[in-house]
Simulated assay, not measured.
Amino acid sequence: MSQHFKETPHNAISDSHIARVIPCKQLNMSDPFKWLVLALRDAQRAPVLTLFFGVVFAAIPWFITYLVQLTGWHLVIMPAIVCFILIGPFLAAGLYDVSWELEKNHVPSLWHSIKAIKRNAVNEWALGILLMVLMIFWLRIASVIHALYPPYLDENWENLLPFLAVGTVVGAGFTLLVFFISAFTQPILMERKVDLATAVLTSMHAVWTNKAPMMLWAFIILMSVLIGFATWFIGFVFLMPLIGYATWHGYIDTIETKRQRHFE
């Protein structure tokens, strides 16, 4: 765990009167890679659950692609990638539970992971609704971008490039916003009895305080998603559980506690 501490800076997030903000630690650029090493260890200790959640994460983009083939709307691929990133943090609750159980030297189970969403049910479902609203909003914007594509143009690379560029820029903005909002929100809600506003503002504060290492972590997540799509979703079977486990270790490493954790 990173042992470098930093005083909470005065900014709009930490000074918020909406909710309290849990202090965070200062991270190093090497920390995201440490989280991945710990995640790999978790995957080796719980191979069956890792495979199960990996298949679930692979099935979601497969279904999205199937819908694309039915509709013939190829420009939906980029919105689909963004939607996958939007809903990922909420769906990863089961993976966080697996890492948490392993950290406590318990034997993780599928049923225990499924029940993870009930620990702080109201606020966790509120997070899911928030991410869903953002996803719907993004899809509406993506529809507008698609509607601007002239129907008389052939769908070749030269004609598609301007629209893909616009969609990529807008999608990157949405992805960055969601990353700030949800980087550690779900783990916070799972472990602590806090409200959604506190969890979201704490996540935003942690990302803002550790811009460089957290942007590196965001880049790793993005590359994992792109690799997953490039390998026709096979990569998701391994990469998404790894990202989920690593996120939990990132949360443990980043968000402070009043008392040191003593896992039994």
Rank of each mutant, 00 (worst) to 15 (best):
S2V: 13
F5I: 08
K6P: 03
S14H: 11
H17C: 04
A19C: 08
R20N: 12
I22T: 10
N28P: 02
D31M: 11
F33A: 02
A39Q: 06
D42S: 06
A43V: 13
A46M: 05
P47V: 05
L49G: 06
F53K: 02
F57H: 04
A58P: 07
Y66S: 03
V68P: 08
Q69L: 05
L70A: 06
G72N: 05
G72D: 06
H74G: 09
H74T: 12
M78H: 15
V82Q: 08
V98F: 03
L102A: 07
L110R: 09
W111K: 13
S113F: 08
I114R: 05
A116P: 00
N123P: 03
N123L: 08
W125K: 03
A126N: 04
L127N: 06
L127M: 15
G128V: 02
I129V: 15
L130A: 01
L131Q: 15
L134R: 11
M135W: 12
L139F: 03
I141P: 04
S143A: 14
H146E: 13
A147F: 14
Y149C: 02
P150L: 09
T168Q: 08
V170G: 01
F184N: 00
M190C: 04
M190S: 04
K193I: 07
K193Q: 13
D195S: 02
A197I: 10
A197K: 08
L201I: 05
T202W: 01
S203C: 01
A206W: 09
N210H: 12
K211T: 15
A212C: 04
M214G: 04
M215Y: 15
M215A: 15
A230G: 03
T231H: 01
T231K: 00
L239I: 05
G244R: 02
G250A: 09
T254G: 09
T257C: 00
